[in-house]
Simulated scan of single mutants.
Amino acid sequence: MTASTPTGPAVPVAPSVSTQIHLASRPTGWPTPENFRTVRVDLPDLTPGQVRVANTFVSVDPYMRGRMNDVKSYVPPFAVGEAMTGGAVGEVVASTAESLPVGTTVLHQQGWRDVAQGDAAGFTAVTPVPGVADSAFLGVLGMTGLTAWVGLTTIASLRPGDTVFVSGAAGAVGSAVGQIARLLGAKRVIGSAGSAEKVRLLTERYGFDAAFNYQDAPVREQLPTHAPDGIDVYFDNVGGDHLEAALDVLNRDGRVALCGAISQYNTTEKTPGPDNMANLVKQGLTLRGFTVGFHLDQAGEYREKMGPWLRDGDVVTDETVIDGIDRAVDGFLAMMRGENVGKMVIRTR
């Protein structure tokens, strides 16, 4: 929307209504559209030190499913009847904060809406990268890529010459893990995915040495054929049968970075644990869970590494883009079903 003035060109008008996705009820098992509600909220005038941001992209991620449950976790659950939150990138369209003038590109956690507003301290200015969509700040240049970096370097202590197995490897985190592992000197990188098309992407685009479709046969049968000499590092996005299979083939002093358990997010019954946990003792294995929010101090080092890799084409990244905040729930559910390639984002303008 623009407004004309008698003495100059049209100037942007800051939107005053925010279209938001609220949690209407807590899902049991798989979420459905009925668990969400689209709400339009009139925004109040800015108070000193605040900004209003027109979001460009918002992120939908697997961890958000866990926040829909009313259980204790590392972050509070989403509140029923209130707007959900998550990563977003956008442009400041109104400001009473000198540190974030109009036109600044910012990263923040007021996702699931097209317009965000709040104290400037809740928004971080970022410098757009020429030729790279701002959505990259939600993916390979943001928390997604940092998750891959932290899991490999800090949690799994990747060493040159290691063999690495990545589950859910065609997703945003998994595809970054495989490429970073290769650049850090891994000898062999193996990935699992849920379709033949994604398996081809892993080997032909993302540089994995081997990949398999976990739908074709039990993971426990397929993994050993691709890792005849075992694996040294397992980056776990899935849990369940993938973790069990990895425990079978981890070499002495093997390390596991437990990042996610998407196979269990929508279950309504308790999932049995692996039947081979004794291998932890026999092989001296280390399993360590993590969430990237406790490792944000590594963001600077990570960006210094990833910037040149991305610029030089050493790392490639893909996105699945859904247009319109009104379709955010569709995008989230599609992502949970594994229908995305790379990072799933919602383009809001």
Score class of each variant (00 low, 15 high):
177 V>I: 14
168 G>K: 01
347 R>L: 05
205 R>N: 13
27 P>G: 11
100 L>G: 11
246 A>R: 00
338 G>V: 04
88 A>Y: 04
83 A>I: 06
97 A>M: 08
268 T>W: 05
213 N>G: 13
202 L>D: 13
309 W>T: 07
239 G>C: 06
224 P>N: 11
85 T>V: 08
324 G>L: 03
87 G>K: 12
55 N>W: 02
255 R>M: 07
90 G>L: 02
163 T>W: 10
137 F>A: 12
268 T>C: 07
3 A>L: 13
214 Y>P: 08
70 D>T: 05
262 I>V: 15
146 L>N: 07
101 P>C: 11
52 R>D: 10
26 R>A: 08
152 L>I: 08
254 G>E: 12
286 T>L: 04
62 P>G: 10
211 A>T: 10
109 Q>W: 10
139 G>E: 11
113 R>F: 02
217 A>S: 14
327 R>C: 01
337 R>I: 05
329 V>P: 12
4 S>Q: 11
221 E>G: 04
172 A>C: 05
22 H>T: 11
141 L>G: 03
222 Q>L: 15
71 V>D: 08
165 F>P: 02
66 G>R: 12
223 L>Q: 09
312 D>L: 02
209 D>A: 06
71 V>M: 08
132 V>W: 06
148 A>E: 13
329 V>D: 14
95 S>R: 11
48 P>S: 13
156 A>V: 07
171 G>A: 00
324 G>T: 04
138 L>T: 03
306 M>Q: 08
143 M>W: 01
334 A>Y: 00
142 G>C: 10
257 A>D: 07
47 T>I: 05
71 V>S: 08
147 T>L: 05
290 F>T: 12
121 A>K: 15
72 K>E: 15
332 F>Y: 13
6 P>A: 11
120 A>N: 11
254 G>N: 12
282 K>S: 15
123 F>M: 06
157 S>L: 05
335 M>K: 04
212 F>H: 14
185 G>M: 05
12 P>R: 12
185 G>C: 02
84 M>I: 08
294 F>V: 01
112 W>K: 03
348 T>C: 03
155 I>K: 08
92 V>C: 06
287 L>R: 02
255 R>Q: 13
15 P>Y: 09
34 E>S: 15
264 Q>F: 02
160 P>H: 06
82 E>V: 00
246 A>P: 01
102 V>T: 14
274 P>L: 04
113 R>L: 03
32 T>M: 02
104 T>R: 09
125 A>Q: 14
147 T>Y: 07
97 A>S: 15
